[in-house]
Design a binder for these strands. Structure first.
Lengths: 339, 339
DNA sequence: TTGTAAGCGTTATCAT
DNA sequence: ATGATAACGCTTACAA
């Protein structure tokens, strides 16, 4: 293999070496069917010999396709980077895309200047976008979704009315929460408190709704609610506030394992036994659930699959295929020692 | 603001509207100093009016600069995605780059076909690359680093001899580990075991070296060592193996908080008191350290800063600036209840 | 300070 | 099945 000095080899040079025209080389590179096998052979050899790599920019310019997909993460969501759920979704996206010819562009969307992001997306820099957000300020992306291929991870919080003309990969948070809370009811708990996520996030809203539904259905008074912000520390603080209230309770449904884990720390501090005094159920089934003591009963959901599915759908969307608007991923109750 | 239908507005149209040549518009867009203020004004207005966004591909092609930076994560490293340390580094990179005009391309480098990645990097698709790897198989990138601007996060494990002609942002893992272990010695511990990371990763090697150094210096026999693979589960298993050995010990230095956290679970299972029976020190100061019971004494390091610093350096490198080869970030012992 | 014009390396449209 | 040749939208000497 000879690496010719003086600039990367171009289509032109490959053509010269193979003794064909540039068009033909281009056809081979793009594996067009209408090329004689022998010619394909010759061209490929020339390519190998020169170590030719197609110039992306030129390709984009000429073909008007970027082969790039943006993964957009709003700034206020980005602080959840180290949330295992979140990290896993990103991981799923990256892995799935690594198997294609698409390049993944990671975009942190500034809150102050989110025109910048919209311009980037509209400016023909990407073929499509994946939007990963828990927050309600993503309305602008819903509009964008009518202009270009976009797949959302989790339904946008603020746009329930438009939710059927966009593409969403999600779990049924409400139904899953119902299963979790029903489990507590089945165990004989009657005063069930809730540690919620911030209510500007769709999963937080839905999980709380599921909690409320089950209590109503069972004819139970809703227990106290505190916001735990989806973080362990927030969960701990929420637990402290719950314990500081007048209302008593014999169970807590936390909208995430991280919050449940934080809450558990506080319960232990206060000498309360779990599940004897207070039963606890979380959501996610991540490491925080399995490693806590006692291990936390929770709802399992498949974040990596969510990521791969999002990538998968977007690619098909870009290819002009018809794909389902809403993909609901399965969830499952995992019973452990905390309930 | 009028959005003209029929294709995105081009430089040409802006030029027409502003009554100048394309070159002038180009100059304004690239904020060249040599343009009359009034002309700048007119052009900017035309740009705003048309909602003009420069075409990246065309720009790349003409200028031979991509304004893109690759963040390369080898596949076997990618499974650490949800490691808080790792996630924070990525977050730091993304945030820093979001403040520049650079686009971040996230690349999962396949182990089976890592020629693909190298080709991508060399093929003029990016202006530079950030390599994030704990593993030893990154030798190829060290070579690449002589061809193009590359900054490593953590020193490459396999290339200690070439380490001074590459750019690295790291902490002094060995010195930090020494501080951690010395702390145990100072507390009167004499039989100090080690839960290590996989030895093909530089931080694992360095932290173990630090452990060994302190023991030698103190005239203590090195305690038993088990590999915990940098994961909580691995840490738990390593702890079980340690306890299954004949050697006794009164302290454990784990090379990460995740492993320490897993180890702690096992110690509790066995009814061993921490720190009374066995003292424990970890590394990272992430949530696993703070939320464990008891909270884990550990070494704090700044992963987000590592990410921002890497991005910062690479940008300066691309701009042709002279930058330091090795940037060592500060670490600090955080004493908690486990020691 | 501004304009002209020649690329940048592909793809795509037509012929052949 | 293959080859000319014109785009693609921008940057950049070079001229003016």
């Amino acid at each position: 293999m000879t690496i010719s000095a003086g600039g990367a080899p171009t289509l032109e040079k490959v053509a010269a070496l193979a003794g064909v025209s540039r068009s033909t080389v281009s056809r081979v590179v793009n594996s067009s069917p209408k090329v004689a096998p022998e010619v394909v052979q010759a061209v490929n050899q020339a390519i190998a010999e020169l170590g030719y790599v197609p110039n992306r920019a030129a390709r984009m310019l000429a073909s008007r396709r970027t082969q790039t997909i943006a993964l957009v993460i709003p700034e206020n969501t980005a602080r959840f980077f180290s949330d295992p759920f979140f990290a896993s979704v990103i991981q799923g996206v990256a892995f799935r895309l690594a198997q294609t010819d698409y390049t993944l562009s990671l975009v942190i969307a500034s809150e102050t200047d989110h025109e910048k992001t919209r311009r980037y997306l509209r400016g023909g820099n990407v073929d499509g976008a994946l939007i990963l957000s828990h927050h309600s300020d993503d309305t602008s992306y819903v509009e964008l979704a009518r202009t270009m291929p976009i797949v959302f991870g989790g339904r946008p919080a603020a746009a329930p009315e438009n939710v059927d003309d966009i593409y969403v990969v999600d779990v049924d948070n409400e139904a899953a929460a119902e299963v979790a809370v029903q489990h507590l009811v089945d165990r004989g708990r009657t005063r069930i408190a809730h540690i919620s996520g911030r209510q500007d996030m769709a999963p937080a809203q839905d999980r709380m709704a599921g909690w409320r539904t089950v209590l109503e259905r069972a004819g139970l008074e809703p227990g106290p609610v505190e916001d735990g912000d989806f973080t362990p520390i927030g969960g701990a603080e929420a637990m402290r506030r719950l314990l500081g209230r007048r209302e008593t309770f014999d169970a807590v449904f936390a909208a995430s394992d991280q919050m449940a884990s934080g809450a558990l720390t506080v319960l232990r501090e206060r000498g309360l036994r779990v599940p004897d005094d207070i039963a606890l159920v979380g959501f996610d089934n991540d490491y925080f659930a399995t490693s806590s003591v006692p291990a936390i009963t929770t709802i399992e959901q498949p974040p990596v699959v969510q990521g791969t599915t999002m990538a998968e759908l977007l690619v098909r969307l870009i290819d002009g295929e018809e794909v389902e608007r809403l993909t609901v991923l399965p969830t499952q109750l995992v019973v452990r020692d905390s309930s």
